[in-house]
Simulated scan of single mutants.
Amino acid sequence: MCSNPQIEQDFNKLEKFIEDLPDKKGSLIAVLHKAQEIFGYLPEDVQKFVAKKLNIPVSEVNGVVTFYSYFTEEPTGKYVINVCMGTACFVKGSGDVLEEFERQLKIKVGQTTSDDKYTLQVLRCVGACGLAPVVTVNDKVYGHFTKDMVGKILNEYNE
């Protein structure tokens, strides 16, 4: 496959996941989630690998990757910060939260900090409107988020 042992190991891990599926038909999204978990993003070579293993066209894989905002074709930081910009969150101040993240991280939405630690993104809706405004960091959800909490959260992820 390639000369990088880590990447080869990652492809083997994905291949095993696909092989262990009871039914490959209809499993594209689950496989893409696993692939993104393993690789951190879904570059073209990973999409081609998934297509081959599931016996579907690469265009179908890419169509799903580009349709869902959860999937990314670009490398992201260690911590992906998502600020929900759905109606409930926006009305309750997520715009201010987003501006504060941009100010403190010195990046704009869609960018990654120069140390590859943080990527800042927005989501249309997290589906937790009762907790508005909502911020997620990787898979952790923070509700009732205010711009005053931005520094505290960033410190929490500074090792």
Rank of each mutant, 00 (worst) to 15 (best):
Y70P: 00
P22C: 01
L32G: 02
D45L: 04
D139I: 11
V97L: 12
V65P: 00
K48F: 09
L28R: 02
L32S: 01
F145E: 03
A88H: 13
Y79Q: 15
D139E: 14
N4A: 06
Q9K: 11
D23V: 14
I153C: 01
T113N: 05
V58G: 01
G77L: 10
G110H: 06
G143Y: 14
N158S: 10
K52Y: 11
Y142V: 09
M149L: 13
E44W: 10
L21Q: 02
M149I: 00
I18Y: 06
I107A: 03
S27A: 15
E37I: 03
E44K: 10
T66H: 03
P133K: 06
V126N: 14
Q47K: 04
T112S: 13
E159T: 13
V134N: 07
G143P: 06
R124H: 14
C84Q: 01
Q111H: 15
N12W: 06
S69T: 04
T66Y: 00
D148F: 09
L123V: 03
K147M: 04
P133M: 11
K106D: 05
D116A: 13
G63C: 02
D20A: 14
A51H: 08
I29N: 00
V64S: 10
Y68S: 03
V61T: 12
T136Q: 04
Y157M: 15
L131H: 09
Q121N: 02
V126R: 13
S27H: 08
A88W: 12
T72F: 04
C84K: 13
D116T: 15
L123I: 09
Q36W: 10
N82A: 14
D116M: 15
L14C: 15
F90P: 03
I7D: 07
N82C: 04
V141K: 12
D116Y: 14
V50H: 01
I56P: 02
H33K: 12
I56R: 02
S94R: 07
V64F: 00
I81M: 07
K92D: 09
L131E: 07
S59T: 12
Q36P: 05
G26A: 08
G127W: 09
F101L: 08
C2F: 15
E159Q: 05
P75H: 03
K106R: 08
P22Y: 01
Y41W: 11
V122G: 06
K34D: 11
G110I: 04
N12Q: 15
A30Q: 14
Q111K: 15
K152S: 14
C2S: 11
K13Y: 10
G151W: 07
G86D: 05
E19W: 05
I7N: 10
P57E: 09
E19C: 06
V135F: 04
Q36M: 06
G93I: 05
E74D: 09
K152W: 11
M85K: 11
K108C: 11
V31D: 09
N82W: 13
K53Q: 04
V64W: 01
Q121M: 12
T87R: 05
